[in-house]
């Protein structure tokens, strides 16, 4: 079953929630409404065989898009070896998405990482704590307005001596 068929099925089932379908270098990306993400993920896992969540991450589009963040889900089907990417837009003032940890257990740590590094919170997550940064860290380092040298430090000027 090709990925076009999956996208057509998805459109048929969740017509109102599919915002955009993009194709780049042979990879398909579907942007969906964030309210429906758990329903869409469950459907893709149960009916279309996307049983493996390869990766989940957030992207900060500060100043580039109306909604500041995107949460990206890279799905994989172990039987057909097909890949599909889902994305949801997340606004800065309501930076929460429903957790998909109930669909794929592996999402647990990926979502913790996304919360830790980008400050996107996940509803109904079983254990939403920081994972890579220390527990008392302030700020979310992968945000575009977080300086690369860390807070309260002058930018690195290079080894000029």
């Amino acid at each position: 079953m090709s990925i076009e068929v999956v996208v057509e099925n998805l459109k048929g089932k969740f017509a109102a929630s599919i915002l955009e379908v993009a194709e780049f270098r042979g990879e398909t990306t579907v942007i969906v409404k964030k309210e429906e993400i758990v329903a869409i993920c469950s459907y893709l896992k149960m009916s279309e065989g996307f049983n493996f969540l390869s990766d989940l991450c957030g992207v900060d589009y500060l100043g580039k898009k109306d909604d500041r963040f995107m949460v990206v889900y890279n799905l994989y089907n172990i039987s057909t070896h097909a890949r599909l990417r889902l994305k949801v837009a997340v606004a800065e003032k309501d930076a929460t998405v429903d957790s998909v940890a109930s669909v794929w257990g592996t999402a647990n740590w990926h979502e913790r990482e996304c919360w830790d590094l980008l400050g996107i919170s996940f509803n109904n997550h079983p254990d939403l704590r920081r994972i890579l940064m220390p527990a008392d860290w302030v700020g979310h380092p992968l945000r575009k307005d977080y300086p690369v040298q860390g807070p309260d430090r002058a930018p690195y000027q290079g080894g000029l001596s």
Binding site: R130, I131, L132, P141, L142, Y146, V148
Partner: peptide
């Protein structure tokens, strides 16, 4: 985990 976090993803940007 995270004791060896060096921010590779941030640095790459």
């Amino acid at each position: 985990i995270g004791f060896l976090h060096r921010g590779v993803e941030k640095l790459s940007e």
